Computed example of a mutant assay.
Amino acid sequence: MRLGATLLVLVLVVVLGWGAGLLLWTQSRIEHVDALSEAANTPGTTYLIAGSDSRGGETVDSDGTEGARTDTIMLLHKAPGGNSYLISLPRDTLVDIPGKGGYKLNAAYAFGGAPLLVETVEQFTGLTVDHYVEVGFDGVAQVV
C-alpha cells in the first residue's frame, strides 16, 4: 500500500513538473506585443488574427515595397450567447486608416504595425479587439 502511494505521488510530481515546464517553455517562445487600444469594450470576446510576411527582421523587397505587410486578416468573435464567428477581412478592402486617410486595409500594418491595424479594424468593424495574434512567415516556415 505504501509503495503504491509513493509511486502515485512520484507520477503526479513528474506529470505536473512536465506540464509546468511545457507551459513556461511555450510562454518563452511567444513574443508579446502591446497592440490593443483603449477603446470601450464591446460584448463578447474578439480576436484579431493577422498573418504577416515578416521574416524575423529581414526586409522583404522583391517588389520594391518596404516594411512588412499582412496578407491574411481574420476576426474571430465569440458572442455573449456562445456563438462564434470567424470573418476574413480582405487585405484590399478600402478603409479609412486613422491619421493616414483612405488606403487598403493591409496598409495599416505597414504604416503603424499591429497597434494601427487593431485601431483600423476596430474603427471599421465597430468591435473592440480583445486579443491580437500574429503569425509571421518565419513561424510558418518553422512549422513546415
Rank of each mutant, 00 (worst) to 15 (best):
V118I: 10
V118R: 01
P98R: 02
P98W: 01
V60P: 01
L3H: 11
P98K: 02
D61L: 04
E66I: 12
I97F: 08
G44V: 01
A110S: 13
L48F: 11
L127K: 00
V14Q: 04
A5N: 05
S28E: 08
L22M: 13
G136N: 15
P115F: 11
L10A: 15
R69W: 14
L86W: 07
T6N: 04
L23E: 06
P90N: 02
T65I: 11
R29P: 00
A114E: 13
A108G: 11
I87D: 12
I49P: 01
T65N: 13
I97Q: 05
S37E: 11
L16D: 05
T42K: 00
N41P: 10
P43K: 09
N83G: 04
V121L: 01
W18S: 07
R29D: 03
T65E: 10
L23W: 13
F124T: 05
D34Q: 13
G102S: 14
G21P: 10
T6I: 11
T6P: 01
F111V: 14
L76A: 10
E134I: 09
A108D: 11
Y103T: 05
L8K: 07
F124A: 04
L12N: 05
W18V: 14
G126F: 00
S54D: 08
A35W: 05
T120M: 05
T45A: 01
K104F: 03
R55I: 13
V13I: 15
S84Q: 12
Q27T: 03
D138H: 09
L105V: 09
I73E: 05
V133C: 01
T72W: 03
V143D: 03
G51D: 05
L10G: 12
T59V: 13
E122H: 04
V95N: 03
E119Q: 06
I73Q: 09
D130A: 00
L10Y: 06
Y85W: 11
T6G: 08
L36S: 03
S37K: 06
N83C: 02
R29K: 09
A20W: 14
P115G: 08
A107P: 02
V133L: 15
Q142M: 05
G19D: 07
F137Y: 13
S84K: 10
T42M: 01
V11D: 04
G56L: 02
E58T: 08
L117C: 03
L16M: 15
Y103A: 11
D96I: 08
A108P: 08
E38C: 00
L8S: 10
L48R: 07
L116F: 07
T46R: 04
Q123F: 02
G44S: 02
G139W: 04
I49F: 03
V60R: 08
A50R: 06
L76K: 00
E66S: 13
L10P: 09
L36A: 07
V133M: 09
W25F: 15
S62R: 08
D63C: 08
A68L: 06
A141D: 14
Y103F: 14
D61G: 11
G101H: 10
E122Q: 02
L75V: 15
